[in-house]
Amino acid sequence: MGGSRWSRAEEFREFAAGRAGQLFRSACLLTSGDTHLAEDLVQETLGRMYALWGRVARIDNPAAYAQTVLVRTFLTHRRRRSATERPLGEVPERLAAAGDDPALRVALLDALGQLSPKDRAVVVLRYWEDRSIEETADAMNVSSAAVRTRSVRALAKLRELLGGSLAEYAAL
């Protein structure tokens, strides 16, 4: 018994170590740059994945499933913590470490921070993870129509907030 339990943990460690970086980056976008909350979300996501591990191993793509679990964790997490949400526009901490042009990143994260959590999740799934409308709807447990509505609204808002600076950004 001890043997298989050990190998289960080992197998999971290998999976988790391979995915943690990407999960963390997604979580940072979802939280609009709150790296502490992002780490917490990744830990919670890995915890949920471990609890499901025996079953998840039979899922086609555990890596993609982990991203879905992350988004769901984020959405429920925000509901719980809404009272203590970080004030809008606060500059995220660890960005100073980033390389070129931190101002644009701050602008992007700030703009993401002005979206509702669900709109932000739609943006991250659609334009960071390149998921289709249907895949996004599935990950968020909502209808495709709801994802379309949120996409349109979120893009309009981001265009309004970032229009000019993104043009520069792409040119870099």
Binding site: S26, Y127, L155, A170
Partner: peptide
């Protein structure tokens, strides 16, 4: 705009280590 946004998200996302 969608493509520019995607690019900006990738740059920003990858700045988090």
């Amino acid at each position: 705009f969608e493509d520019r946004l995607g690019e900006a998200l990738r740059h920003t996302g990858h700045s988090f280590e």
